[in-house]
C-alpha cells in the first residue's frame, strides 16, 4: 500500500507491541503501526483513509504504566511506549462488545447477502463469539430499497459511520448522517427520507463498499453474494488531501 511522502522532520520512535521491538513515525497511531506490522487489532469503525471516529472500542489496548485503556485508532505512538493488544482482559471485553452488537439489531447471518464477506462476522469468529450471552433486543428496523442501485438494511447497521464519513470526506456529498441518539440512532439520508429520493446522493456507491456488514449492499445480490471492495479508499483519500 502506498504511503504518503515521508515528511522529513517527523521523528522516528521506538516502542514495543506485544513484546516485539518496533519503530514508527511519531505521527502514526497505534493501529496504523499494528497494521503495518501485521499485528491483528480488531476494529469496525476505523478505516484507512477516513477520519478517526473512535466509536467501536474494539481496538482498545493496554499501555504499561496506565490504568485505563486506550483506543489504538485515536492514540498516537510515543517513544518507549509498551503496548499490549491481546491480554485476556482485552479479549473478554472485545467479545462482550461484539455480543452487544449482535444483540442490538437483527444480524441474521444465514440470510445475509454479506454472509461470508462480513467484517462483523469475521470478528465474531476471531474473538470467539460462539453465542450471545445478553438478550436480543428485538427491535424492528425498516429496509430501504428505494434506491435503484443500492439497498440499506438498518437491521444490519452497527452505526460505525463509515458511510457518513466516506460520503462527507471523500465524495463530498454528505448525503448520510446519524439521527436520534443512543440506541435509537439511525443512519439517514437527507431529511430521513427514502434514499432513492435524496437530492444530493451521487449514487457513487462508496458508502456501500466501506460498509463492514450487510447494511449497505448492491440491489440484486443474494445470500453471500455481496463482496466489498475498499482498495480505492486510501488512493482517493491521499489525492483528496493532496489537493
Amino acid at each position: 500500500m502506498a504511503q504518503p511522502a515521508v515528511i522529513p522532520n517527523v521523528r522516528v520512535v521506538t516502542l514495543t507491541i506485544d513484546d516485539r521491538d518496533l519503530s514508527a513515525r511519531e505521527d502514526e497511531t497505534i493501529i496504523e503501526v499494528c497494521r503495518e506490522n501485521h499485528i491483528p487489532i480488531p476494529s469496525l469503525c476505523h478505516l484507512d483513509g477516513l477520519s478517526v471516529w473512535g466509536g467501536c472500542r474494539l481496538c482498545m489496548v493496554e499501555l504499561e504504566g496506565q490504568a485505563r485503556l486506550f483506543a489504538a485508532c485515536a492514540t498516537r505512538v510515543a517513544e518507549g511506549m509498551r503496548i499490549h493488544t491481546m491480554s485476556e482482559k482485552l479479549k473478554r471485553y472485545r467479545r462482550t462488545i461484539i455480543e452487544l452488537l449482535f444483540a442490538e439489531r437483527h444480524h441474521v447471518c444465514a440470510v445475509c447477502v454479506s454472509n461470508g464477506h462480513c467484517e462483523l462476522q469475521w470478528l465474531a469468529q476471531k474473538c470467539g463469539v460462539d453465542h450471545v450471552r445478553v438478550p436480543y433486543r428485538q427491535a424492528a428496523y425498516p429496509v430501504d430499497s428505494s434506491h435503484e442501485m443500492f439497498r440499506l438494511d438498518h437491521n444490519r447497521c452497527i452505526l460505525c459511520t463509515r458511510c457518513v464519513r466516506v460520503c462527507d470526506e471523500i465524495e463530498g456529498a454528505h448525503t448520510w448522517d446519524i439521527m436520534g441518539r443512543g440506541t435509537d440512532c439511525r443512519v439517514i439520508s437527507d431529511l430521513a427520507q427514502p434514499w432513492g429520493t435524496s437530492d444530493n446522493c451521487t449514487s457513487c456507491g462508496k458508502c456501500v463498499q466501506v460498509c463492514p456488514t450487510g447494511a449497505l449492499v448492491k440491489q440484486g445480490t443474494s445470500v453471500g453474494e455481496m463482496v466489498k471492495d475498499q482498495h480505492f479508499l486510501p488512493i482517493l483519500a491521499r489525492r483528496r488531501h493532496a489537493q
Binding site: 444480524h107 447471518c109 444465514a110 461470508g116 462476522q121 465474531a124 469468529q125 470467539g128 463469539v129
Partner: peptide, 11 residues
C-alpha cells in the same frame, strides 16, 4: 472443544 476455530454464524 473450541468450535469457534471451525464454525461461524451463518455458515
Amino acid at each position: 472443544p473450541d468450535p469457534s476455530s471451525v464454525t461461524r454464524f451463518g455458515a
